[in-house]
Design a protein around this nucleic acid. Sequence first.
RNA 1: GCCAACGUAGCUCAGUCGGUAGAGCAGCUCACUCGUAAUGAGCAGGUCCUCGGUUCGAUUCCGAGCGUUGGCUCCA
Length: 607
Amino acid sequence: MHRRLRATPEWSGLRARCLHLPVRRSLLDIDRLRHSTAHVMAAAVCRLYDGVKLDIGPATDDGFYYDFDLPVRIAPEDFPKIEAEMARIVGQNAPFERVVMSRGEAEKTLSGAGQTYKLDRLSDIPAGEEISFYRCGDFADMCRGPHVASTGDIRAFKLVSVAGSYFRGRETNPMLQRIYGIVAATQKELDAHLERIEEARRRDHRKLGKELDLFSIHESVGPGLVHWHPKAARMRVLVEDFWRREHFRSGYELLFTPHIGRANLWQTSGHLDFYRDSMYSSMDIDGDDYFIKPMNCPFHIQVYQTQKRSYRELPLRWAELGTVYRYEKSGVLHGLLRVRGFTQDDAHIICTPEQIFDEIKSVLAFCLRMFRAFGFSEFRAYLATRPAKAVGEESRWDEASRSLEAALKSEQVEYEVDPGGGAFYGPKIDIKVRDVLGREWQMSTIQFDFNVPERFGLVYVGEDGREHRPYMVHRALLGSLERFFGILIEHYGGAFPLWLAPEQVRVLPVTEKQLDYALKVESALRGRDIRATTDKRSEKLGAKIRSAQLDKVPFMAIVGQKEEASGAVSVRGRSEGDMGARPVDAFAEMLVAGSVPGAAESGNRPT
RNA sequence: GCCAACGUAGCUCAGUCGGUAGAGCAGCUCACUCGUAAUGAGCAGGUCCUCGGUUCGAUUCCGAGCGUUGGCUCCA
């Protein structure tokens, strides 16, 4: 899941631009610094606490961590103490010395020190490979390295969090304590990094969702179940309308299907065999078991099966904004990004073998077009191919995988292949999108399904008059509307572009004497489908402007005596400031022109 | 689900070493009628997450549960 990115020049350039990370050093050097700092942290923890058992302390994408088994609980309040000890070690400028040992020596050293986790890790090292320790002052750790020359090279670091983590990530193993830290070459770079974390915190969709009155999740209703407030609902309608229009234009038709279905259906589809852990328990209706849907595909298949299908009507492209419910473990729920009930922008494409190349290519192009409309321009794809255990003929897998790869090449999307990483039922492409802060979000998935068509006996009649099994592709572009909305909030920092803003204009009367005129302006704008409201409070103009700014409304229309006399408004842009007076009609014209779906706007810069 | 922390007004938070609580903002009322990021005064607002236990007395201590947060894991 947390795959390390390859340091292609193009990609690291992007990182540098978006994450404000140092460009001068190669990623290897920064990793060396991170890993060495993890050692220094481990050394400090060993000095401060007794009975420390070490596991590992690797560099991560933006820092480092070290896993410990400790008799005491570490809390963030302990960080200053550990950091102070780390600073002492750095001050000593102790060199990192590499010590090579035989397996026997290493075993003796580790078991003598009671380092059981390390012993376990030692057994992972293949026979014949060199076993090295790195010593630094009074601390030594089995480690492949490499390290910086000495601790004095570590100038700016900070511990950021502590959390539990299973040894080797397995639930059955003991839970260790993981301390996370960040490190940079200079204090300035560290500060920049901290500033980036701060910016991400400011943009947190859970925080903005509350501040901007967008959505809520209620303990009384249940965790992971989202309530869209009026402003968010308005935005969702804008997204959905745009989505539907684009689908119709791209040759899709829409379906609406039920929320529940008989157990037998899920038995046939295989969900009850393979996916039951993620499904909610059944409900009894007239003595039959029904399940709430975790996916839409079995329903779409039913629609397909209502007729004998000919090759002439393929490809069929059926899309549905289908709300599905899936059980997610309580610990993984996270705002809008990980929920239990969500609306997939699902579609199934059923086509002949001859059609799959073109179909995949156009799905991918459609996908990128969609993202660009929402202000995303950096993508990365992961192609997952046939695993050892898989259903479906190998030739079909090959054909499907080739079509996926060809589409990626033809659309010039950077991608990585994950050999054998596909699900048992088909190969797939997952597409990740970078937001304005340089964070990567998995959104789209385009996957072949060789399982469901087989299980439901899907066929079409070919030119030869015989029955053939069609290819079925399952795809979601935005993924889930809930999750996509959360990402949009963070990408734009709540300052949505004009076409998506739930409130596009707020009319601000200078005094209550202009309230009637303000309401007239509001109604004129609404007449042009512009989302306008009026601030009717008895406040000074400055206060009204402040509220509108905080609510991130794209435009304010200020109306005082002068404007009323001339049938005008004074326009103030949320990022432009005072834009001067103009007639109401001209203002409306400007807004309508700027509200085209997908219209780019500079509303997403960090503020 | 697991480890840890947290849960006080609509929001952000303070506080109570066990004697049922307070601020700012938001809301409401009144006054003010104001020109590009906060006018003033007043009012109202709380099952201190829930349920048990200890105690004369629990928001505070203990236990369980629920939820949130940070991770782990999971994401056919």
